[in-house]
């Protein structure tokens, strides 16, 4: 049984980059191009993990999607990873080091953009699905 990953990003090229690489590595990948579509796909596709871009329709679309997913019964324990370049743009660095931060942000981890497809694959296999 292939692990299911939902990839949410508004940049079609990044989807084009990440999706085949993850698929070639044996994952089942569905994609969404904005937060609204992301939530729908989450309900239909029932992923085991979500990789979500932060700034899509709005600058915080990724957070909003993450909150919505985490507030559902099925989504509570699904790892949601936020991908963002906001740290470089605003000088604000997100972190999920402490329980408080994790509780407030709700996301399980952050990936600093830009991320190469190779690095993303490495992250997914070695961290996200290490024990699965």
């Amino acid at each position: 049984m292939k692990h299911k990953i939902l990839l949410v990003d508004d940049d079609v090229d990044l989807i084009n980059l990440y999706q085949p690489v993850l698929q070639n590595a044996g994952f089942q990948v569905d994609v969404a191009f904005n937060a609204e579509e992301g939530l729908k796909k989450f309900q239909e596709f029932k992923p085991e993990a979500m990789l979500v871009d932060l700034a899509m329709e709005h600058f915080d679309s990724g957070f909003v999607l993450c909150q919505k997913v985490k507030n559902t019964q099925e989504g509570r324990n699904i790892p949601v990873i936020i991908m963002t370049a906001a740290g470089h743009e605003t000088g604000i660095r997100f972190s999920t080091q402490t329980e408080e931060e994790k509780n407030w942000i709700k996301a399980d981890d952050y990936l600093d953009k830009p991320i190469s497809a190779q690095d993303l694959l490495q992250y997914v296999t070695e961290k996200l699905f290490k024990n699965k």
Binding site: D11, D13, L14, L17, A85, K113, P114, S116, A117
Partner: peptide
């Protein structure tokens, strides 16, 4: 980011 990704 996209261009870099493709190059990689």
């Amino acid at each position: 980011s996209a261009i870099k990704g493709y190059i990689e």
